[in-house]
Design a protein around this nucleic acid. Sequence first.
DNA 1: CAGGATTCTCAGCCACCTCTCAGGCCGGGT
DNA 2: ACCCGGCCTGAGAGGTGGCTGAGAATCCTG
Lengths: 224, 224
Amino acid sequence: MRVLVVEDERRMAAALRRGLQAEGFVVDLAHDGEDGLHQARHGEYDVMVLDIMLPRISGYNVCKQLRAEENWVPILMLSAKDGEYDMADGLDLGADDYLTKPFSYVVLVARLRALLRRGAHRRPSVLRAGDLALDPARRRVTRGETPVELTPREFALLEFLIRHHDEVVSKTEILEHVWDTFDTDPNVVEVYVGYLRRKIDVPFSRNALQTVRGAGYRLAGDGG
Amino acid sequence: MRVLVVEDERRMAAALRRGLQAEGFVVDLAHDGEDGLHQARHGEYDVMVLDIMLPRISGYNVCKQLRAEENWVPILMLSAKDGEYDMADGLDLGADDYLTKPFSYVVLVARLRALLRRGAHRRPSVLRAGDLALDPARRRVTRGETPVELTPREFALLEFLIRHHDEVVSKTEILEHVWDTFDTDPNVVEVYVGYLRRKIDVPFSRNALQTVRGAGYRLAGDGG
DNA sequence: CAGGATTCTCAGCCACCTCTCAGGCCGGGT
DNA sequence: ACCCGGCCTGAGAGGTGGCTGAGAATCCTG
């Protein structure tokens, strides 16, 4: 599990790093708010420990900024101050938990694990067209209730078609977006369209993946 | 044993703390329902004493909320003698025991110990996927009823996979989160996936740890 | 420092995937 | 009907990704 620790006091930061590494975490450090914000944006962290009193950008603003950017990494806030007001403030800004210094090391680890267990709020996005459903994250395709096994190329092709369902897409477009070339033999598209049809078309049902002679292909969606 | 006491009357709270500490418990206090809910969520308590009449959020709702979040910490409820709710109400909402004020410490402690002995309904602190269970705190893994011995690296890999069960995770993602590098030979992931399979895959059963060629790996989990 | 556990590298092997090719099919125009 | 161009498809060669056994390097522990 990968954790970003944003803490300006060097001794505290070093202690946290050692301790968390001993617990099996992969630890990155940032020593001010700007650095922390930057690292949080570009690294994929499972959880984040964020001090409030920081040079350049305060922990409050780091948190606020990340949430504004739709970054939902679980955040545990640390503060030297005490009082309910601070805590409510931090939680309002989108932190997931809050700890007041001095804190017990055991408690910190326990709460980090609690955050990890809950997980970040993630967005489920499933693409649909007709009775076809494609989940890019899970890399899973179903027709109705039955799962469909696709090779990577087939999957990429179907994803492109389903994103443009009900539109006619030319073989050239497909080559550009799925194969990343434009001067290959378009026959390869025909071949893969054939593969897809064998896997996603139900016998005795109208074809979901239609040929538009001279123009390209169209994947029929529910709307039209 | 770690106990969380949620009680708004300061005198009563202080008395409970002293009494329970004398019995050898580690005691945390919360003075209203919101605080109590928060602490219960983020701390790992072995048992919880929860007053019903509380500012902000009632004890009933704290309990209900925790159970809705699959938090199965044993809860002992406290009520004033003339409360508007009765015992059946509290137990219906998922409390494990119920005491009416005034009560004797001896009885309180006896019932807490009984709860601890009985254990919670279930320990939800473990991650699950299919018949695999991984307890991050105890660093323990079981397949069904049988324990599985894992090395630290294997454990970290399985933890990452189980947290993303049903999703396809690429070797690069795995390298970043488990190995803390991104430019190492991905073959090391393949090797460790192989190790894991030998330890967690049951013969004659469908593979829990599936290869998604060209994309990564997916740990199959049954909704949990 | 010895012995064992753990992590990692390497190379060979295998299965699957990708793409090419050639022949056949089909639709439309005349 | 006939032809032509676009499309489909079966077969198969070649490439690539992934798996694994062997063993080296490293870490841990007594």
